[in-house]
């Protein structure tokens, strides 16, 4: 993995838009220097820019969405938590000897209600990314997550999880500490909790590492997020025997929010501000907050057993097969 190279902040498909925007800025400056009135031209160019933005972002390919979902400036779990909660205190450690910075969580207040929020945390810069293993959680991370969820269940606090990981940490140490066991345990235990559980894919949902905090009665997903059984790169390497076929794999795997809505996996698609969540993090946070509050209101009308049944039924119905009777 390239751990040191700096990722470009500008994605290829964003370029025409960014170029147009900087041209508008240039014209504006030139006009001001020379005292010429170009307001009509500027208006036209801005309309063109808005149109271009809409065109680009409404027709993104799955692999372009994957790039957006991995955008280094895309709001992270901590960005959202800090933006949407009235109060927030991060809690640390799995009580088994580890505190994994790739999976963060704590107690918070959302619209006047105590909740537990947790999620994968990618770094905000290269150094932070290395410290947080690029959001790839270790077994200790999943054990911290289940400890916090257990806490939420005891105190009747709804659980809000935020998914943003390429997958669980693939290291020898993680294997020795039971990467598979830690995720498996969460999958089973999350069906036991009576408090509402809402899971939101905010960026990249990668494989079992995502699902390990992804069992809820509601699954939300930002418009340009992706959720996949295996990274398209890994899938291409295995099925096409050619990692360069990743964009083909991204299409075939059906990883976008609309695809997952069709398959019945996704409950609600959250629209992103035009230009993507990274172009307006606060706007994205407002959309997220609104959706979480609305979903919570619905779920809080049910009792604990009803919510468990709903969660069971949601997953029970997933799968496509035929059965001649």
């Amino acid at each position: 993995m390239a751990t040191t190279e700096r990722k470009p902040l500008l994605l290829d498909f964003e370029k025409p838009l960014i170029e147009l925007e900087s041209r508008i800025e240039q014209i504006r400056e030139l006009a001001a220097e020379n005292g010429v009135d170009v307001s009509e031209d500027i208006r036209q160019l801005e309309a063109r820019a808005m149109q271009l933005r809409q065109e680009i972002f409404s027709s993104l390919s799955p692999s372009q969405k994957l790039q957006l979902a991995r955008h280094p400036r895309r709001p992270s779990t901590l960005d959202y938590i800090q933006a949407i909660s009235d109060e927030w205190m991060e809690m640390h450690g799995d009580r088994r000897g580890t505190d994994d910075p790739a999976l963060v969580g704590g107690v918070a207040k959302l619209a006047g209600r105590a909740v537990v929020m947790l999620g994968h945390q990618k770094g905000r810069d290269t150094k932070d990314n290395i410290a947080r293993n690029f959001g790839m959680a270790s077994p200790g991370g999943y054990r911290k997550a289940i400890r916090l969820m257990e806490h939420a269940n005891r105190f009747g606090m709804p659980i809000l999880t935020f998914i943003d990981t390429p997958g669980a940490l693939p290291t020898a140490e993680a294997e020795y500490k039971g990467a598979g066991e830690a995720i498996a345990y969460n999958l089973r235990e999350m069906f036991r909790f009576e408090v509402p559980i809402i899971c939101t894919v905010i960026g990249e949902g990668g494989s079992g590492g995502a699902l390990g905090i992804g069992v809820g009665e509601r699954l939300l997903m930002f418009e340009h997020s992706v959720y996949t059984v295996a990274t398209p790169e890994a899938c291409a390497a295995i099925l096409w025997k050619d990692a360069a076929k990743a964009s083909q794999a991204a299409v075939a795997l059906k990883i976008t929010a609309p695809d997952l809505k069709n398959l019945g996996i996704l409950d609600q698609l959250l629209p992103e501000p035009s230009g993507g969540a990274h172009s307006d993090p606060l706007g994205a946070a407002t959309i997220l907050k609104q959706a979480l509050i609305e979903n919570l209101e619905t779920l809080l009308q049910m009792n604990g057993q009803e919510r468990r049944k709903m969660r069971y039924q949601k997953f029970r119905n997933l799968g496509v097969f035929t059965e001649p009777s």
Partner: peptide
């Protein structure tokens, strides 16, 4: 695809 991943939870 994702239908397979969901079987783990089911």
């Amino acid at each position: 695809g994702m239908l397979s991943l969901m079987q783990m939870a089911k």
